[in-house]
Design a protein around this nucleic acid. Structure first.
Length: 665
RNA sequence: GGUCUCGUAGCUCAGCUGGAUAGAGCAACUGCCUUCUAAGCAGUAGGUCUUUGGUUCGAAUCCAAACGGGAUCACCA
């Protein structure tokens, strides 16, 4: 197809030269696909040349068309509609295009570009949900697409196995776990740990509410006390209070920050109390606040994190045990949804690495130290802001770790491109990361690409784990499998399959529906998932495309039975094609181009759209043209060969989306 | 409020390097299974492409502004 298009472009170029002395390089000739309602494959727009040629757009079209028709063997006919010249390719050319396609060897590029694709990257405190599925499917698919374009791809999973989130689950488990294990309860490991995470959040929310009530009490007290008192509190107390009042919405994310303020508050209060000895209510409130503070689970989680960092044996043991449960659960889910990784990184092993980068940045004067000892980078020139890269106490922040892992990945793989599959809420963060690395003069900085994807919404709005509105990945998959089973049984087309084969088919269909649904939308866009009606098996869906493959598989079985040859020489002299056949050939011929485009855009949706178009075109051919009734052996052989090629292409395209196609369904 | 992003049929989405009467699927309605799998095919109906200006032979597409969603603006990860 690419060759054909180039040929036509060349012809148009030389025709323009010969007829109108217009100089237009072949690669400047813009050929677009002809609209369905007109005859033709390529359309050349003549409007832009009316001035230089001095003729009307239609006249140019006719003159050009006539010239091309008589001088270019591939062009069978033409028609002109206003400024559009539609060129019709003859059937022999299509047969020859197909022939080339048919025995085209897959060409390997010499020097292979190295690409690291990081995706999934879960936290180990709760099971995967719908949002993770989009991430996993995208990452896997993009990796496959890049491979198909000759890249040397490494799939990497950076597991967030340490930090406050896992300590939260651990604290809750320590308090209320009662020795539960996945084995004892029969609950999948990641779900069991998730249960304690949710428990933590519930208690935490309640505790913080309590604390805030005391704070309010305090503030009211401050209001009618002495000026001096109020001065102290207005600066130190009122500020915090205002910030967090009515801010329950964001509480979940801010609990750590919040809890850090309490000791400061207590300190100020103690100072006041010294001077206001006569006021017992202050003492009372300090006591109350202090005891509530100490009981806070979030405080205990922070303490646990400290212990973890200092290598406390007991804590490490518990951590390893619970993470082990989670990994077992994740592995099971990964297996079911069919994603895999070449390398796992664990944050517990990498979170200290970024400090070297900080030292390096300080040495280069890219970073600078503030008087309190904290380290910063100034990105104002890059249109960003100042960014902290190391706390005053010498501990890392998120970005520090990312600097470290970027370096580590480069040391490990010497990548040309490093893809991060991360939700769009981190756009700014990723921009900062890249800008810092660039500023540090890292050779790999330019190769960093943030594959940013939009959130998955539910009809009820955003998914929120706190409100129990998340769609659990395992549950969703199970429901999908059940739907696939019901649907398949209703249709009753798979007699003869063993129970095991049937089970595999249900999973194949379920994953086909789910993956196609999540991948057919442009990654950048936010999307809506309606569990009630979104997942369908008809129309523009995974199973529709899978069905097309199963149909063709049946044809190929029959063709084999009838000993029909699909050798090229069996049909190479065919000169007439059905219109639907030419259409299918034209689509088949664009496959390579589409795959390249998808890689360039990091967009599986491009492949999805193509697979759908191809399946649709084939189904039209299938109903309009009979294969085995055909008496002309060349036409028969061609149709079988065409069908086989479509099946092969559909299979390849769907593989790029991580979707398998069945031979029967 | 600053920055970024999105706004296309009742719903979910394509189309966006400027080109013809803006396309699919779902939902609704009408046909097509004695012939290779009807999870299919063909058709009907459904649109001021959020609005207003600009650029030009031509704008859903490019530019600007407004309106409306969303994200982000942590010494959280």
């Amino acid at each position: 197809m690419i060759a054909l298009e180039r040929k036509i472009a060349q012809s148009v170029s030389s025709a323009l030269q010969a007829l109108f002395s217009v100089n237009l390089a072949p690669d400047q000739v813009n050929l677009q696909p002809t609209r369905k309602e007109f005859a033709g494959t390529f359309t050349f727009v003549t409007f832009p040349y009316t001035k230089t040629v001095g003729k009307g757009p239609e006249q140019i079209g006719h003159t050009l068309g006539e010239y091309l028709k008589t001088n270019v063997p591939e062009i069978a006919d033409y028609n002109v509609v206003k400024g559009f010249l539609n060129l019709v390719i003859n059937d022999e050319t299509w047969v020859s295009v197909f022939r080339n396609l048919f025995n085209q060897p897959t060409t390997e590029t010499g020097k292979r570009e190295k690409v690291v694709v990081e995706y999934s990257s879960p936290n180990t405190n709760k099971p995967l949900h719908l949002g993770h599925l989009r991430n996993n499917f995208l990452g896997y698919s993009v990796a496959e697409i890049l491979k198909a374009n000759g890249k040397d791809v490494v799939k990497v999973n950076l597991i967030n196995d340490r930090g406050i989130h896992i300590c939260k689950s651990m604290v809750a488990y320590q308090k209320l776990g009662n020795g539960e294990t996945p084995e004892l309860t029969g609950i999948k490991g990641d779900h069991l740990v998730g249960k304690y995470y949710v428990l933590f959040e519930t208690i935490n929310k309640f505790q913080i509410k309590q604390l805030k009530a005391v704070q309010e009490e305090l503030f009211n007290l401050g209001n009618f006390h002495s000026e001096r008192y109020r001065i102290l509190t207005i600066d130190q107390v009122f500020h915090y209070w205002e910030n967090f009042k009515n801010d329950l919405e964001k509480e979940e994310k801010k609990d750590v920050a919040y809890s850090r303020l309490i000791p400061k508050l207590l300190n100020s209060l103690k100072k006041i109390a010294k001077d206001e000895r006569e006021n017992p209510s202050i003492f009372f409130i300090i006591k109350k606040l202090e005891s509530l503070y100490n009981e806070l689970w979030i405080v205990q989680a922070q303490k646990m994190l400290k212990k973890w960092e200092s290598g406390d044996k007991k804590i490490i043991e518990l951590w390893e045990k619970m993470n082990g449960w989670v990994y077992a659960g994740f592995d099971e889910t990964y297996r079911t949804i069919g994603v895999d990784f070449d390398k796992y990184y664990y944050e517990s092993q990498t979170y200290l690495l970024g400090k070297d980068s900080v030292a390096e940045g300080l040495g280069n004067y890219v970073f600078y130290r503030k008087s309190d000892g904290s380290v910063w980078v100034d990105l104002k020139e890059e249109g960003l802001d100042e960014k902290l890269v190391l706390r005053a106490d010498g501990t890392s922040v998120y970005i520090t770790q990312d600097l470290g892992t970027a370096q580590l990945k480069y040391d490990d793989f010497k990548y040309d491109t490093s893809v991060y599959v991360i939700a769009d809420e981190q756009n700014y963060h990723m921009q900062v990361l890249k800008a810092i690395l660039q500023k540090m003069g890292k050779p790999y900085a330019a190769g960093i690409f943030h594959l940013s994807y939009g959130m998955v919404d539910l009809p009820s709005g955003k998914m929120k784990s706190r409100e129990g509105t998340v769609v659990d990945a395992d549950e969703l998959v199970a429901e999908m499998v059940e739907t696939a089973r019901q649907r398949t049984d209703e249709l009753g087309k798979i007699e003869g399959l063993s129970e095991l084969e049937a089970q595999q088919l249900y999973l194949t269909l379920a994953m086909g529906a789910l993956k196609y649904f999540l991948l057919k939308v442009d990654p950048k866009k936010r999307m809506l998932f309606n569990p009630e009606e979104s997942i369908n098996f008809q129309g523009n869906t995974g199973p529709f495309i899978q069905y097309t493959h199963a149909r063709i598989a049946a044809i190929m079985r029959k063709a084999a039975e009838l000993n029909i040859t699909t050798e090229v020489n069996a049909f190479e002299n065919l000169i007439n094609l059905h219109e639907t056949e030419a259409e299918v050939v034209a689509l088949l011929a664009t496959y390579q181009k589409v795959v390249a485009e998808a890689a360039g855009l990091f967009a599986p949706s491009v492949i999805g759209q193509y697979a759908y178009d191809l399946a649709k075109a084939y189904n039209r051919f299938y109903t309009e043209v009979s294969i085995f009734q055909e008496t002309n052996p060349a036409a028969l052989a061609f149709r079988v060969a065409l069908s086989g090629k479509v099946a092969e292409t559909v299979k390849k395209a769907m593989r790029l989306l991580g979707i398998n196609v069945p031979d029967r369904m």
